[in-house]
């Protein structure tokens, strides 16, 4: 079924936040907000959950640490032990201080890139992806609130529009998607 979406445009982040708070208070479900920069404090109002990317990064980092440790153990201790600078590589633990730098670097490498890739995939931002912001001005100085009619069936379209119009918008537009 075709859905109707109301896009309400604001020219100030605080006004939008105020408006969202009022609308949510009345039981309106705000689907999304488009803005040129992160609006602080909007997430709890419109119910955006906190991302778990941080945990991801930790896990990628841990993987990196393990890979580096096992890799070095294999290369330097098992496969081809060498005697370097009077420090024969007979055991991992005795040579550990000189392995720490690479283990650290590899941990950071895996954590940073793992997280960056996950971030791009989760945001669906990849080279060649089409832009989905409702109005080109949302990357400049305008803020747009997206309200889906389907998600707010307790209100009529008219009421919804009227309620939104009270919140200090500068433009409003309804589209079929």
């Amino acid at each position: 079924m075709a859905d109707k979406v109301i896009y309400a445009m604001y020219d100030d982040d605080d006004v939008l936040k105020d408006g969202a708070k009022k609308l949510v208070g009345k039981g309106v479900h705000v689907a999304d907000v488009y803005s040129p920069f992160p609006i602080h404090g909007i997430d709890p109002i419109i119910g955006v959950k906190h991302t778990r990317l941080g945990i991801n990064a930790f896990l990628y980092g841990l993987t990196g640490t393990m890979l580096a440790l096992f890799g070095i153990k294999y290369f330097m201790i098992q496969d081809w032990p060498m005697n370097i600078g009077g420090k024969p590589s007979f055991s991992m633990i005795e040579n550990l201080p000189s392995f720490i730098p690479i283990v650290f670097e590899f941990t950071v490498l895996c954590a940073a890139h793992g997280m960056a890739i996950t971030y791009l995939l989760r945001n669906k931002t990849l080279p060649g992806m089409p832009a989905r912001n409702p109005d080109p001005r949302t990357t400049d100085d305008k803020f747009v609130m997206e309200v889906r009619v389907n998600e707010n069936t307790q209100f009529s379209e008219k009421d919804l529009q009227a309620m939104i119009k009270e919140t200090g918008i500068i433009e409003i537009e309804e589209r079929e998607v």
Partner: peptide
């Protein structure tokens, strides 16, 4: 700690 320890350990 590590910088001090490792450099001295390494140079021996």
């Amino acid at each position: 700690w590590f910088s001090q320890f490792m450099l001295i350990w390494y140079s021996n």
